Computed example of a mutant assay.
Amino acid sequence: MTSPLARTQKDGWAAMQLYAGTIPAARQLDSASPIPLWYQLVQLLKLGIESGEFRAEAPISTEENLVTEFRVARATVRRALDELQREGWLERRGPRRPLVVKQRPVLQEATKLAGLFSEGFVSRGYRMSIEVRSAEVVIDARVAMELSVRAGAPLYRLERVFKAGDEPVACEIAWLPKALFPRLLQQQLDRPITTLAEEKYGTMFSSARQHLAARLASAQETKKLRLDQPAVVLAVGRLTRDQLGRPIEYMESILRADRYDFVMALESSNRSIDIRLS
């Protein structure tokens, strides 16, 4: 038999999951709700940040003001502020009040096959663009092995920079088998390759295996992404297959770690989850 405490904890967790991402009906906290007050406050403050009530790079309300406005304990306010800082909405610079971050990371599902242009950028009103740095035909034995083609097979090599507004957020080098995409270099390359492959060649990007790791950026990478050294970036390697199971693209990307936030949905079941630690 489930204890009342266990039922309360379970109901509260379920309610928090439903509550996340919603806009409260009124600017007040509901003490009768199974949702913890600190979590309700987190959602209200997020709404204030998104609406522009709390300006970017400006201090958020003082703890005293939040305690008075929402009629909660100081410990509740501090936990809410700590959570906002942990999620990347706020940052602390010395002993002063936490500041609203200028640009929050964009959430991207690590279990979903998507390009570097997450819907999160578009939903925030960014104008997305792709700058083509180079496009050529090469022979690369290492990449040929990744794509399961012969060592001397010609490959397209595309080097591109992805921008949100005028800010570069990622740089990418992609290789594709020339035999599968004839006259690719004559196509418009400043758009997602997934769209181009489907529209011009009838090829669907169906599945992929991706590796993601954090590391320090090289001098060349910091220059491309306009970062100050030293800077941490996310290095992504991905092999993509089409609807027939053929390897069609091998990609190596460098993402600004302060602009992307990858999330994964995990299930507790008989399914195996491949997690590698190094």
Rank of each mutant, 00 (worst) to 15 (best):
W38F: 15
Q220G: 01
Y39F: 15
R7I: 12
T2E: 14
T8Y: 13
P98A: 05
L90V: 07
R256E: 00
E146K: 11
E63F: 00
I193N: 10
R78W: 01
V169T: 10
L212H: 01
L147T: 05
Q9S: 08
Q85L: 09
G94W: 09
V137G: 03
G21E: 06
V77N: 01
E136Y: 00
Q229I: 11
Q40K: 04
Q220M: 08
E119S: 09
R93Q: 12
M145T: 10
T203I: 15
L239A: 00
T2N: 04
L107G: 01
Y156F: 11
I193A: 14
W38M: 10
L47H: 10
S268G: 13
M204S: 14
S123A: 15
I139R: 09
E87L: 03
A231L: 04
E69R: 12
T222N: 07
I273H: 15
V233D: 05
K224R: 14
E57S: 10
T240K: 00
I23C: 04
S278D: 15
L113F: 04
R150P: 07
V42S: 03
A257M: 03
E199T: 05
A114V: 05
K178Y: 05
A15Y: 02
E119Y: 01
K200V: 13
S272N: 10
A217N: 01
R79L: 06
I60Q: 09
G94D: 08
R246I: 09
Q210W: 00
E53A: 12
E167M: 13
R124V: 13
L244P: 00
P95G: 02
R209C: 01
V137I: 15
R150K: 11
Q243T: 06
S148R: 14
S268Y: 11
Q220A: 15
Q28G: 06
P24G: 02
G202H: 07
E252N: 09
G120R: 06
S268K: 14
G21N: 01
L255I: 10
R104G: 14
E172D: 14
T8N: 07
Y156V: 03
V236P: 03
K224A: 14
